[in-house]
């Protein structure tokens, strides 16, 4: 592994993304990306008694299907890295228990997908292990229960609020099995806090973190936005991505035609999600459906994925602290 500049690393081995699998809820399945998803679940409890058990079930289904799709067996997967939004990562922990794969639990809120790709590919780079599965997800109802209000509680959302994506995305990485899509470089983000305290306005809180990371990547690699077919942020939503574009413009990078935001594109405007999707599952399912699909068909040659995470805690937020945010970047390339 070669260190480029301050925060960016280049992988020397060929680390392939063998398969990606996405499992989403009905609302996401009704959105514009529906034909890219592998599974659309009508029942977001998955036939279980509680939403938490349903989320767990989604993880198990997504991960075992991803392993099957990649042609491996559970025994051939050396490591499972990933996380979710629940306290103590309950969904991932119980999933790891069921799958019996060695497990590293990660928490970077909605940036966990790129974080797990970074950890997974770094492990593969060191050698000694061959296949890693990275999976993250989130669930609207469990997140609502944990971070906000009961589901039947009547309140109006702020016009700048976002909607937590119900879904799990899983990618199988391998250093032995070859595929078209490779992970080439990544940038580890710094925690960034620009003083936003409003937990409904996560897009605005996370936009500076995305800006810092992308800016660092461009500086470290001496490239600009023109060198990439697609630049995708994780879950800034409409407002957040507008702010992000403004911030990048200030730094001298003009993001227009090749920029998308996963949160903004996952729902239709008439689905009433206000600024769009958010959550750990958001960039995970878009990466493992739309982006991988376009890379495999050759429509894109290289893609920058910047998952953004708002590392908020309701406890310290109520004590008046602002929201620290982080963003990690991964460069995916087709040979």
């Amino acid at each position: 592994m070669i260190k480029l500049g301050k925060q960016t690393y280049q992988l020397e081995k060929d680390i392939s993304v063998v398969t990606g699998l996405s499992l989403v809820g009905q609302k996401e399945g009704d959105g514009p990306l529906k034909r890219y998803f592998d599974f659309v679940e009508k029942d977001d409890k998955m036939g279980e008694k509680t939403f938490e058990k349903g989320e767990r079930h989604m993880f198990v289904k997504a991960i075992s299907s991803a392993i099957k799709k990649s042609g491996f067996s559970n025994e051939q997967i050396d490591l499972y890295v990933g996380g979710d939004l629940m306290n103590q990562l309950v969904s991932s922990n119980y999933t790891a228990e069921e799958l019996e794969i060695p497990f590293l639990g990660l928490y970077n809120a909605c940036a966990t997908m790129t974080e797990s790709l970074i950890i997974g590919s770094t492990f593969l780079e060191t050698g000694g292990l061959n296949n890693v599965i990275c999976a993250t997800g989130s669930h609207f109802s469990t997140a609502e229960r944990q971070y906000r209000y009961p589901l039947e509680f009547g309140n109006q959302r702020q016009s700048y609020a976002q909607w937590t994506v119900t879904g799990v995305g899983a990618s199988v990485l391998s250093s032995v099995k070859k595929s078209k899509v490779k992970i080439r470089k990544f940038t580890v983000g710094k925690v960034t806090d620009f003083g936003i305290c409003d937990i409904a306005n996560m897009g605005a809180a996370m936009a500076p973190a995305a800006m810092e990371t992308l800016n660092a990547f461009f500086k470290d690699t001496n490239t600009t936005q023109k060198d990439y077919d697609l630049i995708a942020t994780g879950d800034l939503g409409k407002l957040g991505s507008d702010i992000f574009k403004d911030l990048m413009q200030e730094k001298g990078y003009d993001l227009e035609t090749n920029y998308i935001d996963c949160g903004h594109m996952i729902y239709n405007i008439d689905q009433d999600t206000l600024q769009g999707g958010s959550g750990a599952g958001c960039s995970a399912v878009v990466l493992n459906s739309y982006i991988l699909n376009k890379l495999n068909t050759g429509e894109f040659k290289n893609v920058l994925l910047i998952s953004t995470g708002a590392l908020m805690s309701t406890t310290v937020n109520q004590q008046g602290d602002s929201i620290p945010c982080i963003a990690h970047l991964v460069l995916l390339e087709v040979e």
């Binding site: 109006q156 702020q158 016009s159 700048y160 620009f194 003083g195 936003i196 306005n201 605005a204 500076p208 407002l239 507008d242 702010i243 403004d246």
Partner: peptide
């Protein structure tokens, strides 16, 4: 930044 966000956020 907070002032800028305030200005940019859509009002109901």
């Amino acid at each position: 930044y907070v002032a800028y966000v305030e200005n940019k956020s859509p009002k109901a």
